[in-house]
Design a protein around this nucleic acid. Sequence first.
DNA 1: CTTTTCACATACCGACGGTATGCGAAGGTA
DNA 2: TACCTTCGCATACCGTCGGTATGTGAAAAG
Lengths: 203, 203
Amino acid sequence: MTEGTRAHRREQTRRALLREGRRLFATRGYGAVGLAEIVQSAGVTKGALYHHFASKADLFRAVLHEVQQEVGREVAETAAAQDDPWEQLTTGCRAFLTASTAPGVQRIMLIDGPAVLGWSEWRALDEAASARHLAEALTTLVEQGVLTPQPVEPLTHLLSGAMNEAALWLAGSSGPRDLDDTWNALSRMLQALRAAPAPAPRP
Amino acid sequence: MTEGTRAHRREQTRRALLREGRRLFATRGYGAVGLAEIVQSAGVTKGALYHHFASKADLFRAVLHEVQQEVGREVAETAAAQDDPWEQLTTGCRAFLTASTAPGVQRIMLIDGPAVLGWSEWRALDEAASARHLAEALTTLVEQGVLTPQPVEPLTHLLSGAMNEAALWLAGSSGPRDLDDTWNALSRMLQALRAAPAPAPRP
DNA sequence: CTTTTCACATACCGACGGTATGCGAAGGTA
DNA sequence: TACCTTCGCATACCGTCGGTATGTGAAAAG
């Protein structure tokens, strides 16, 4: 043991805390997990935890950040593989649906996140990580005249909320049909936002 | 003091606990409110609380039930005032948006609810109280051929989630325009679900 | 080799959720 | 009225948990 330089071991401890914290928070929820269990699983003590994080909620914040970055990155990469902006939106939404349905994401990102950090902070973090991509895609489509001119922000919230709730439902009890059905309905909603093809977009 | 019969005083105490619990949970959140503060505000002791409720979470469950009943009742009454099923759906959705934006509802029903009771139980309670009306309205419209034939359940979750998130956003920071913009976008999404009398959008 | 820094362990504290028990008045019975 | 039972609630207490203060040994600095 005791291998490596000081900064290395520091990072190692931090990683272990994040890993075990994420695992436990994801499986049993923030409230039902004690710090003692986290530090024991990570092989350290509470002293180490409070040397890296200011509080239990702060550890959760770091875990949430990690999860959101993962989801956001996956959505962004999937969308970036498409050329057409409309395709970017649709494939991005599908990617979000599947990514946020994964275990180890649900409870942290969609359930405990708002409750532990408060909705406004959760919203800000979510905005920076993944909802930002949705807003950008919608803005682009509105500017290009693909979508009916309209404020993007309420649209972002409606779609984001729809997908979040759908992901929670899909993760719970779902036959393979449910994902398709959900996607069909969501796809139809997205189609509804398209501008009538006749008038040319304003330059 | 000590007025009234035994059952009357019992109900009186229960009401006080629900009232103060709701007030405190709504303003500061489930986690940040201690039982001591609740019972003190209600003018009783912890013994009384545990005589009426099995746990802190059980008190919260009762409070949540009360809030959901209120919202559900308001939505149902507003919708029932309409004759046309389509109007019932739209006015019901608008009623839900305004009702769930009210303070004293938000935090309990949309934030702490899923976190404290778990998503599945929260979903079941929400289903029984208000989402049920949405599902029934959608089912009726599908049966009448107003909506494109499609599974109702995923649709219910998408719309429910969209409205929940929109309500949280609207309650936070919003000019009066935001409610209109949100409603316009949501209205357009609902329209997209209608069975096409003539083919409207592009393939 | 000495000193400082730092990552972490140990020991401890107050607060909180939860429980066991005591008590006094309402309701039943003679 | 006298008595007993029930019950709604208060009081006292306990284990656990989040959080903090302090100690410690090894790596880095000099």
